[in-house]
Design a protein around this nucleic acid. Structure first.
Length: 295
DNA sequence: ATCTCTGTTCACAA
DNA sequence: GTTGTGAACAGAGA
């Protein structure tokens, strides 16, 4: 589930427990989500600590507790944060439960691609957090930052570059498709094929999608408007939501991930895309109707 | 039974 | 060094 906006939604859920102490910790210490984590130190340190703050950065979350304890959470593919009633009994996939007087904060993850970290760092957030790349909505996510990385990955498909967390932290599969659709660029467009104007557009659309997703999904899991590709990319009989277009959307694998795009609004840049590079996944009917011009 | 999946990482090929 | 591919992780849901 989780990309930048979904992550922030889950982070806010646990804010119900900010300012309150942790009276007990329950965890499935052998669960894969604790790989690389000092589980033995975690429970004793969190017990009795007060949850002071929550932070989100792309797909990463960090919870600060009194005593310099920091709990990092990545939700992977199926992770979620919930708030349950006080005394909650951990279900099968509830790998970490922070019991507070008034509620229980739960981290659950069925597939366990997610991950929990624990650090003691009295001076502030741990080093790995400080080393994260500039957030999409921060000044560091500049034209130079974006253009530089697009240039460095010149031959890589744009879709693959958008999914690179060290460049576009928080962008996941659906956000990448949404951004490409708004750019009018084919997912397999080589990143190096963009001119300065298109590079700037990549940054603008990325920021716009992130901001709007945070204001909808990020607040109450509300769907973004029907005018977004987001609302149509999985539906059957799926057509491009751009008003005059209505072309049947394509779903194929690109850069190793199922990718949805509009063949009319996102034609391949001439001479760039190898037509055999994408293999069909389960496409609807499609109409060959190339349209000239791209942003 | 079979296939899919809003993620990451690793080994290996080109 | 870069890029693509496939597998692995592990479970639920269609």
């Amino acid at each position: 589930m989780p990309e930048l906006a979904e992550v922030d939604y889950f982070r806010r859920r646990w804010d119900a427990g900010v300012g309150a102490g942790v009276v007990a910790v329950h965890l499935h210490s052998a669960a894969r989500v604790f790989r690389g984590c000092d589980v033995a130190a975690l429970a004793p340190r969190l017990r009795g600590a007060v949850l002071e703050k929550s932070l989100a950065h792309g797909k990463q979350m960090l919870f600060g507790l009194s005593g310099g304890a920091w709990l990092g959470v990545h939700l992977g593919m199926t992770g979620e944060l919930r708030v349950e009633a006080a005394g909650h009994r951990a279900a099968r996939h509830d790998h970490l439960v922070l019991h507070q007087a008034g509620r229980a904060l739960v981290f659950a993850d069925s597939r366990m691609f997610g991950r929990v970290r624990f650090d003691l760092s009295p001076e502030g957030p741990p080093a790995w957090w400080r080393d994260l790349p500039p957030g999409i909505l921060t000044p560091g996510f500049s034209e130079g930052w974006v253009a530089g990385h697009l240039g460095r990955r010149a031959r890589a498909p744009l879709k693959a570059v958008l999914l690179d967390q060290s460049i576009f932290p928080g962008v996941g599969n659906w956000m990448a498709d949404e951004i490409l659709w708004r750019l009018g660029l084919h997912p397999l467009t080589p990143a190096g094929a963009l001119d300065a104007e298109a590079q700037s557009a990549v940054r603008q659309h990325t920021r716009w999608v992130a901001r709007r997703a945070l204001a909808t999904i990020g607040v109450d899991w509300r769907d973004p408007p029907a005018a977004w590709l987001y609302r149509h990319r999985w539906a059957s009989g799926n057509r491009c939501p751009r008003p005059p277009c209505r072309t049947f959307l394509v779903r194929e694998e690109a850069a190793g991930r199922t990718t949805c795009w509009c063949p009319a609004c996102q034609p391949p840049l001439p001479g760039t895309t190898r037509s055999s590079a994408a293999k069909p996944v389960r496409t609807g009917h499609r109409r060959e109707k190339p349209r000239a011009g791209q942003a």
